[in-house]
Amino acid sequence: MERGPEELNQQDLVRYLEDRFACAQACDECVRVCAMRPGPAEPGGVARLNTACADVCDATSRVLAEQSDQDEQRVRMQVEWCRAVCLQCASLCDPHPASARCAEACRRCAKACDTFLTTLG
Rank of each mutant, 00 (worst) to 15 (best):
C93I: 02
R108T: 03
G121H: 11
E42L: 15
Q25R: 14
L13P: 02
P43L: 12
E42T: 03
D69T: 04
H96R: 03
C27K: 07
D19R: 12
V14S: 11
R37M: 15
C93R: 01
Q67L: 14
N50V: 01
P95H: 04
E80G: 00
T51N: 08
Q78S: 12
L92I: 08
A65K: 09
P38D: 13
A24L: 04
Q11L: 06
V33K: 13
D55C: 01
C93D: 14
L17H: 03
S61D: 05
L13A: 04
H96G: 00
Q11S: 09
C57Y: 04
M36W: 12
A35E: 15
W81N: 08
Q67R: 15
L49P: 10
C34R: 11
R20Q: 14
F116H: 14
D58M: 02
P43I: 08
Q11W: 04
A98W: 13
V85D: 02
E66V: 00
P95N: 05
R101M: 03
L117S: 06
M36G: 10
R101L: 05
R48G: 15
S99A: 15
A26T: 05
C82W: 02
D55G: 08
C93L: 02
V46I: 15
A35Q: 14
P95F: 06
E80R: 13
P5S: 09
V14R: 14
D28Y: 04
C106K: 04
Q88K: 13
D55N: 07
V85H: 02
M36V: 06
C93M: 02
A22P: 00
A41V: 08
F21T: 05
E18H: 05
A22S: 12
L64Q: 03
M77I: 02
C23V: 03
A98H: 08
S99Y: 07
T51Q: 14
P97T: 03
L49Q: 11
Q70M: 14
V46Q: 14
L17T: 03
G121Q: 11
C53L: 08
C82E: 07
L92H: 07
E66N: 10
R107V: 09
C106I: 06
H96W: 07
C102R: 03
L87W: 05
E66M: 07
P5Y: 09
R20P: 00
S61K: 08
V75M: 05
R3V: 10
M77A: 14
N9Y: 02
E2D: 04
T51G: 15
E29H: 12
F116N: 01
G4Q: 03
C57P: 02
V56Y: 08
L13W: 05
A47D: 13
C93S: 09
N50P: 00
Q11V: 10
E80P: 00
H96F: 08
C23G: 11
R83N: 06
A35I: 02
M77K: 07
C23D: 06
A52V: 13
N9P: 01
Q10G: 01
E80K: 10
R15L: 09
R20W: 00
S99C: 15
A52G: 06
L92Y: 03
R76A: 05
D69F: 11
A35F: 11
T51F: 10
M1W: 07
A26F: 07
Q70R: 15
R108M: 07
K111F: 06
E72T: 10
A98M: 05
C34I: 03
C102F: 06
C113P: 01
